[in-house]
Design a protein around this nucleic acid. Structure first.
Length: 260
DNA sequence: ATGGCATGTAGGACATGA
């Protein structure tokens, strides 16, 4: 199965680009972030018409995540456990029934955290603590599992074209990167880095200052695979050409193919 | 050092993003 994560930066503004992409690239499963829509306003019919089951976890104006799947889904849950007072829609998970293997798939939109320090940064770090707890539980389960989405984390200097521009940013602060490493070091495989070494690979380019034309990007959209899931990985790549299309998102899709 | 651009909400600026 082919799974993509894609921060679409608003479903209302991105529906034509999204449906064109679905038709051409044909993911079995697409994990979307920043749908910026309540569930009732999400244009599910246009996507269902392409053969997808649509599961959303939206909110008004900001955030919001979704799972689109051509394969059967079971046990869909919404919201990251650990804080019942958290009203931000940043987490959705489901079991995807593959041809040979069921996989637990989690889609996430990790908080940006700027400005740091401050309450938004505190929220980011607290959210990452909850993510670590959920990650531990996924590792303890039998079923292969992955967590994919917009992590808003630049893991290493080589993951930014101009790392010096990010040294005081919540995406690159040592404390942010350490929290990400703590989760990876529980036993996850960061799928892209398991296959591709070195710099120059990005998943986000700002709309401003000609960032795409200058290839001034950062790599912040990631797949973390449990060991059982990493055993199934056949490939991982970034579909960077999508950034050069008409009316693009500022993120591009990142993919894994699993033998499942 | 700053803003640059885009989106949603709303019907004019403003909050948010990374």
């Amino acid at each position: 199965m082919k799974i993509a994560t894609f921060n679409i930066n608003g479903i209302k503004a991105r529906l034509p680009a999204l449906t064109d992409w679905l038709k051409e690239s044909e993911p079995d499963v697409a994990l979307l972030q920043e749908i910026k829509s309540v569930d009732e306003a999400f244009p599910r019919e246009a996507i269902e018409d392409l053969g997808y089951t649509v599961e959303t976890h939206g909110q008004k104006s900001f955030n919001g995540v979704a799972i689109l799947s051509k394969l059967p889904l079971e046990d869909v849950t919404r919201g990251l456990p650990g804080d019942d007072s958290d009203e931000q829609a940043r987490w959705i998970e489901a079991t995807v029934i593959g041809d040979t293997q069921a996989v637990r798939v989690c889609g996430l939109y990790l908080p940006n955290g700027n400005p740091a320090p401050g309450p938004k940064y505190d929220y980011k770090l607290a959210w990452m603590d909850r993510l670590e707890a959920r990650a531990r539980d996924l590792l303890a389960d039998e079923m292969p599992a992955l967590m994919a989405g917009d992590y808003n984390i630049i893991p290493q200097a080589e993951d930014a074209a101009k790392p010096d521009q990010w040294v005081k940013d919540a995406l690159f602060l040592p404390q942010s990167r350490a929290a990400f490493r703590r989760i990876v070091n529980l036993g996850f495989t960061e799928a892209f880095r398991a296959r591709t070494l070195g710099g120059g690979h990005y998943s986000f380019w700002d709309y401003q200052a000609g960032a795409w034309e200058r290839n001034n990007g950062i790599r912040i959209d990631h797949f973390l695979l449990t060991p059982a899931c990493a055993d199934l990985m056949a490939d991982c790549w970034i579909e960077s050409a999508v950034r050069g299309r008409e009316k693009p998102s500022d993120h591009v899709p990142v993919w894994v193919r699993l033998d499942a």
